[in-house]
Design a protein around this nucleic acid. Structure first.
Length: 349
DNA sequence: AACTTGATCAACCGCCAGATA
DNA sequence: ATATCTGGCGGTTGATCAAGT
């Protein structure tokens, strides 16, 4: 069976933006008669529109309880939170945000949140760190440019036409580090569940959480762009996890469309061990950089043959960038210090 | 001022599942 | 049991606007 037409085949119903007059007609009709059958509504209301179009206009725009304006931080957090549990079930997510429509939430996700998460190296579909090589290659190329830029600076000084802002360079380095570690995490090289990893070793402390720039220790980090958002999202995730442990998500999800419903396909997912609760067992790595270890790095390199799977960037692989990065005089001493001190401490990962 | 680019969002399209004949 | 209808949903498109060049 093919798709059934939502409107009379013969009718030349109007499409496109609604006029104020049409809105008025629709509001007046529904407020007096209720919508009844959407299919027959347009005729009854004197509208030359498809029933589907009327329903959409009403539910997404004209309904009296629609909330307008920017999404609040609280709403944004809730959306990310719910999306991690429900996925692209916009209507179910919308059920938790009074006055917000599924369409609005979907748009907001696609235009804003999704991009922010991607920028942060988080896969918006899985809510886990991205490990795709394209992302790494982009960082690698950025890093390559920064290396070139440094070289040019050395040669040309302030007249370097390829000069890149220092914070961009550092951001690229940070993100590259983060991505590499995320790959290691996803390949079980790192036991992120081990609290010692982040807490036990002072050098392995989350590098951003203490507000210090790992590349320039003792200097406060000037948060801008994605770093700022990283902290923001970090907050969201940690709060989401804590809320989840307080059953907020389970509770709110169970309330979807009139309460906990064991027949709801999402019921088990939501009410048993929710994915967020699973994350509590297998917590999401914080959006921070742990310090690198050459031992593990080699292990990764050998164990996965990852370097072989990389296509070479025009100048080098990310491992070459890594090497350059570690050799970089401006950052080298700090990282060498970390490497030395961590190699002396028990292997945590 | 003109043009380009990117972001936003209302609206449409097509599929699906449940209801009904 | 099957065909058809209907409402709902998620994905996508395109118009509009703002910011940048």
């Amino acid at each position: 069976m093919g798709r059934s037409p939502c409107c009379e085949e013969s009718s030349s119903v109007k499409k496109g933006p609604w006029t104020p007059e049409e809105d008025e007609k629709l509001i007046e009709y529904i407020s007096k008669q209720g919508h009844g059958s959407w299919r027959t509504l347009p005729k009854r209301a004197g509208l030359n529109r498809c029933g589907k179009s009327c329903r959409l206009r009403w539910t997404n725009y004209l309904r009296p309880d629609i909330k307008r304006g920017k999404f609040t931080e609280e709403e944004e957090r809730l959306i990310i939170n719910l999306h991690s549990v429900l996925g692209n079930k916009w209507s179910k997510i919308a059920a938790h945000l009074p006055g917000r429509t599924d369409n609005e939430i979907k748009n907001y996700w696609n235009t804003s949140i999704r991009k922010k998460l991607l920028k942060m190296g988080i896969d918006p579909e899985t809510h886990k760190p991205r490990t795709d090589f394209n992302h790494l290659m982009n960082l690698s190329q950025l890093l390559g440019m920064s290396n070139l830029s440094s070289a040019m600076n050395t040669t040309w000084g302030n007249n370097n036409p390829f000069g890149m802002p220092a914070d961009i360079t550092q951001l690229a380095k940070i993100q590259l580090l983060q991505s590499l570690l995320q790959i290691m995490n996803s390949n079980s090289f790192v036991n992120m569940g081990n609290p010692n990893l982040l807490v036990g070793n002072p050098n392995l402390n989350p590098l951003f959480l203490n507000g210090l720039n790992p590349l320039q220790p003792k200097e406060p980090v000037v948060l801008s762009g994605s770093e700022e958002y990283a902290n923001h999202v970090n907050g969201m995730y940690s709060q989401a996890q804590s809320e989840c442990s307080q059953h907020e998500v389970s509770k709110s999800c169970a309330d979807v469309e009139g309460g906990s419903n064991p027949q709801d396909p999402d019921y088990n997912k939501i009410n048993s061990t929710s994915s967020l609760e699973n994350q509590a067992e297998e917590p999401l790595p914080a959006l921070v950089v742990s310090s690198p270890r050459m031992g593990t790095f080699n292990q990764m390199n050998n164990g996965c043959n990852m370097a072989q799977t990389f296509t070479k960037s025009p100048s080098n692989t990310i491992f070459d960038d890594w090497e350059k990065f570690l050799e970089d005089e401006t950052t080298g001493s700090y990282w060498k210090e970390i490497l030395e001190s961590t190699s002396a401490s028990p292997i945590l990962w």
